[in-house]
Amino acid sequence: MTRQYEPAQPHEPTFADDQAMLRRWRLILGRYAESELPTAQQDREIDQALGYLYDRQYTSRGHRHGTGTRPAKTGGGSQGSAPTAVSWLHATREFFPQSTFERMERDAITTYGMDDLLANPDTVESLPADPALAATLLRMRGKLNPETAQGLRILIRKVVEDILERLKPKFATSLTGSRQRFRRSFHASSKNLDWRKTIAVNLKNVDPNTGRMLIDDVRFVSRQRRQNLNWDVIVLVDQSGSMAQSLLHASVSAAIMSGLAGVNVSLLLFDTSIVDMTHLAHDPVEVLMTSQLGGGTDIARALAYAEQRVTQPSRTVIALISDFDEGGPVASLISTTRRLAESGVTMLGLAALEDNGTPWYNESVAGRLAGAGMDIAAMTPDRFAEWLGEVMA
């Protein structure tokens, strides 16, 4: 027997639904809808915070601010004082969810020119260590007021320190540590648990009645530093305009590697010219503050320059970080890549990452580079550390 279902009855809007809809429209339309959709008292400060930022879209076109209501007949006013950038920032953090606040904060600095946020040390200290915001500011650094330079440096340092904290253990373990297995250890810890080996050696201890495994032999791994580690790592970073996020992570990765014994790091930034930043490789903040994002791309020239620095091909890694959007003759790039690969140099090509972490690169050029002997991948910086560890094992 087929069951019959009654169609759902349409929902009749309630008074609360109507009020919620009117509130949303009032916040969307702004103060100019005040005469028809008065602001509720609890939304007045939210409305002011939104207007303080997004009214700049109109004032930039020459429009004057209005109140949205007929002018009062008396000279006095009852409106609150206009917010400063700092008080606006604190109010916005209180009124909106974190994701919305961070979006408005980014719009304020990058779209609406509120450089005074970066000029205030207290404000900068309160900003999150957001790589996307840092990358955006690096791209537009030349357009910021000189007074904001110190604030930008503080923000960049916060982001760098946050990335360092996350990546340094990965690079240290991948490049200078090797695994040695043993049964028991006085230094056993959960992070060193070798769960695959533990399961394998205890399979015979399964209770036939319950199916549970009884663990009486726990295996761990220990870390032992590699001996005679001696590698040259040449990091080539494309500094065209789309590469800000990748440059940020590459400079931190180079700084970490420059502090590891037995790893000699060269850091080269390029567009159509080449800037040797090896002397600053230990200081990613200074690298980022002196880099010049923008311009064209000549990968072949940069790769040929790196070739001149190779002294021991079999123990040299060239890590090219780029969108592979070559501006010069691709044939020259392929020829240099093939020559380096045939000499024994390990060639790694890392695709550019957008601000949201999505890889973007010229697949045609990347495919030809792969055919010439360069390993191509799109990966996060922590995976890059593991990749380096694998090729330098």
Rank of each mutant, 00 (worst) to 15 (best):
123 T>P: 00
347 M>R: 08
241 G>M: 05
351 A>R: 14
104 M>K: 08
159 V>E: 14
146 P>T: 11
364 S>V: 14
313 P>H: 06
347 M>I: 02
138 L>K: 03
349 G>P: 13
217 D>A: 05
265 V>W: 08
371 G>L: 10
185 S>V: 13
331 A>N: 12
213 M>N: 09
106 R>F: 04
247 L>I: 10
369 L>G: 07
161 E>N: 14
362 N>T: 08
30 G>N: 13
295 G>Q: 01
238 D>M: 11
12 E>W: 06
29 L>E: 05
303 L>G: 04
112 Y>H: 12
195 W>T: 15
146 P>N: 11
251 S>Y: 00
192 N>Q: 13
133 L>T: 07
360 W>A: 14
292 Q>G: 02
138 L>V: 01
95 F>C: 09
100 T>N: 01
287 V>W: 03
6 E>H: 09
325 D>F: 09
94 E>H: 11
147 E>Q: 10
141 R>S: 13
214 L>W: 04
201 V>C: 09
94 E>W: 06
131 P>W: 08
275 V>W: 04
326 E>P: 03
308 Q>N: 11
215 I>A: 03
338 R>T: 09
46 I>V: 15
218 V>P: 01
196 R>W: 07
171 F>N: 10
270 F>S: 01
19 Q>N: 07
337 T>W: 01
60 S>Y: 04
117 L>H: 03
195 W>C: 07
341 A>K: 07
7 P>E: 14
381 P>H: 03
258 S>E: 05
77 G>T: 15
202 N>V: 10
303 L>A: 08
271 D>I: 09
256 I>Y: 02
110 T>Y: 04
314 S>P: 02
374 M>E: 06
322 S>M: 06
190 S>F: 12
244 A>E: 11
361 Y>C: 02
173 T>N: 10
296 G>D: 03
132 A>V: 03
83 P>Q: 02
24 R>I: 12
358 T>C: 01
12 E>C: 05
318 I>H: 14
84 T>A: 07
325 D>A: 12
23 R>C: 07
355 D>N: 15
